[in-house]
Design a protein around this nucleic acid. Structure first.
Length: 602
DNA sequence: AATTACGTTGGGAAA
DNA sequence: TTTTCCCAACGTAAT
């Protein structure tokens, strides 16, 4: 029997290999064509640098450069993209500055809009400062440096451009609503000040505007299978640039490019210094970052660290970690080290290029998107594209075309539930451990995020996902506007995912990964001596067991704030009502605006 | 038009 | 221990 099956398998495989040769060949043809088109793009890209018209959707087009007499410095404005490798804005600026024999001035503006512990937690701000320091060091290897400007970009950046008589401004486009508005204002002000502005894509695998144009009906895919078809149609992203290659040097010692030599006056001045830590900086302390603990941070910000982490993950388990990577099989309970790459925050700030990450691992993987490592980059791309296409409404329930309208309870209605969840005092060890890890380290495994998000919304507490989104946005070092909003809609069954009867149990779910509760014992130390049997449900431990573990529920550790089996069932009923109501309202809105189909029929 | 297959990662009993 | 099916049953897209 086995032999027969084996033979049949071999025959099938043999046939398939012929077929796949055919497929492979047509793929090669497609790839070649695509390469050509990429190459064409590259040529046009070069021509941008020579002063011709831009092929990309730069906000302002460039006039004939040769007629320009302004040889003032070229300012590169860093916001995300805190790296020198594969930085298209920096690379373009280098070419422009070389042509116009001018100097590059890299700047970062520390925008007071973000300097609020309610918006940006101490751990993420520390990560940013570390990333800025590292970028400064990396620029210094080339004779340059990062200049920090404190204040709102529309005043400090514009003042800087004017006072230095800058000829051009370069930056990487940002798809988030706040950034888009901010950048549009800067472009306008630059036009008035006669500073030319050039923008490049770079934060995502593809230029989002380009991706949107490739979509059928210019509508961003709303499911992963649909998004994968889009990825299939556009092929691989461009290979990453290195600054050395842009400069035409093999190493930094060879020769320092003149356009990157920063005048000594900038290095000597104290006014552009990057604070080493939150407490060291008077302005940050004034903004409220006083007595705020960032010591739990586990990830050190910066490009250098990101590249080391990528390499070390590639070596993990002799390459098997990358080869066999399958997200659902990674553990949310692993913390030393975590089971995933831990690169999310570095991608968020652009300390590492998504394209560099992609090309480093794409040929190694034996698993497929969406569970593979490339799949993880695709999820990021997918949600970035959706956020870009839908704009500001993407992160709110009301006015959001994608989002199911649900009568969640507000934090005002359930202040105790909301606070217990945020502070890790729900009485569910798994939920509390996750929330405490979030607050200490600013990072959680994806599945841990699922658990706590489900618990807050449709699972147990029936509190609005917008509250959860805000809390995540405050504490996560990798807080990413699009990704955060999309995942909160997903987990709360507001969009993308609809199977509301699939609820994560705060007791059963972690048992699959961590039977003895190492994770809980680390982050909720008051439970550390509770026997394995009760680690996820200490209220069920007999009184003498609780006493012996020096953890009496109700005294040393809170009682569970809800009965999970009761609450989750009640919420399923609420969900079914909410789904029906949405169906109803969707039907009535489509009635008021009759579709063209009906016209045809008539 | 009606039906079916599927969706990155649920839980739990039974086999 | 691992796999399979059922729970009560979603929306979307393909057929």
């Amino acid at each position: 029997r086995d032999d027969v099956r084996w033979d049949r398998t071999r025959v099938v495989m043999l046939l398939m290999s012929f077929v796949s040769i055919g497929i492979g060949w047509s793929r090669i043809q497609v790839r070649t064509q695509r390469k050509n088109s990429l190459y064409r793009h590259r040529l046009q890209f070069e021509s941008v640098l020579r002063g011709k018209r831009s092929w990309s959707s730069s906000e302002t087009s460039m006039n004939d450069q040769k007629s320009q007499s302004n040889h003032g410095p070229v300012v590169v404005w860093f916001r995300k993209g805190l790296r020198i490798h594969d930085n298209l804005a920096l690379a373009s600026a280098v070419k422009y500055a070389t042509q116009s024999k001018s100097t590059i001035l890299p700047v970062f503006t520390l925008d007071p809009y973000f300097l609020d512990p309610e918006k940006v937690g101490a751990v993420r701000l520390s990560f940013l400062l570390e990333s800025l320091c590292d970028l400064d060091l990396n620029l210094k290897k080339f004779g340059s440096a990062l200049l920090l400007l404190k204040g709102s970009p529309d005043s400090v950046l514009i003042d800087f451009l004017q006072s230095k008589n800058a000829s051009a401004l370069y930056f990487e486009r940002d798809s988030e609503p706040y950034a888009k508005k901010r950048d549009a204002e800067i472009v306008q002000l630059c036009e008035k000040s006669n500073v030319k502005v050039f923008t490049e894509h770079g934060h995502t695998l593809f230029d989002l505007e380009y991706l949107l144009k490739q979509c059928t009906n210019k509508k961003a895919p709303s499911s992963m299978p649909e998004f994968l078809r889009l990825m299939d149609s556009v092929g691989n992203p461009e290979t990453p640039l290195s600054l050395e290659r842009v400069l035409g040097v093999s190493n930094t010692n060879e020769k320092l490019d003149p356009c990157l030599q920063i005048p000594a006056e900038y290095l000597d001045s104290d006014s552009f210094k990057i604070p080493k830590s939150l407490e060291d900086d008077e302005d940050l302390v004034k903004s409220g970052y006083r007595n705020i603990d960032a010591s739990g941070a586990k990830f050190k910000g910066g490009e250098s660290e990101a590249l080391l982490m990528l390499e070390s993950f590639c070596k993990r388990d002799s390459g098997k970690a990358v080869e066999q990577f399958s997200k659902p099989h990674t553990s949310p309970c692993a913390f030393d080290p975590q089971s995933t790459t831990g690169l999310s925050a570095y991608l968020k700030f652009g300390c590492i290029s998504a394209r560099r990450f992609f090309h480093r691992i794409v040929s190694k993987a034996k698993t497929q998107p969406p569970v593979s490592l490339v799949g993880q980059l695709y999820w990021r791309e997918h949600f970035y594209l959706l956020g870009y296409a839908h704009g500001a409404s993407f992160s709110t329930m009301k006015g959001n075309a994608l989002c199911r309208q649900i009568d969640w309870r507000t934090t005002e209605e359930e202040p105790d539930f909301a606070r217990a969840w945020e502070e890790g005092r729900t009485g569910f060890p798994w939920i509390d451990a996750c929330m405490r890890q979030l607050r200490q380290e600013g990072w959680l495994h994806h599945l841990a995020r699922h658990s706590v998000a489900c618990f807050l919304t449709r699972g147990d507490l029936w509190i609005s996902w917008e509250f959860g989104q805000k809390v995540f946005d405050r504490y996560l070092i990798d807080a990413d506007w699009s990704i955060n909003a999309a995942n909160w809609m997903w987990l709360s069954c507001s969009a993308f995912f609809h199977q509301y009867f699939r609820v994560y149990s705060p007791i059963a779910f972690p048992k699959k990964y961590d039977k003895s509760g190492h994770f809980v014992r680390k982050y909720v130390p008051e439970l550390k001596d509770i026997p394995d049997k009760y680690i996820y449900e200490p209220w069920n431990a007999p009184a003498d067991v609780q006493k012996k573990a020096k953890c009496v529920v109700g005294i040393d550790y809170p009682r569970p704030i809800v009965d999970h089996s009761v609450a989750s069932k009640q919420n399923m009923d609420r969900m079914s009502i909410a789904f029906a109501a949405n169906k109803e309202s969707n039907a009535s809105t489509s009635k008021t605006t009759p579709p063209t189909k009906r016209m045809k029929k008539a």
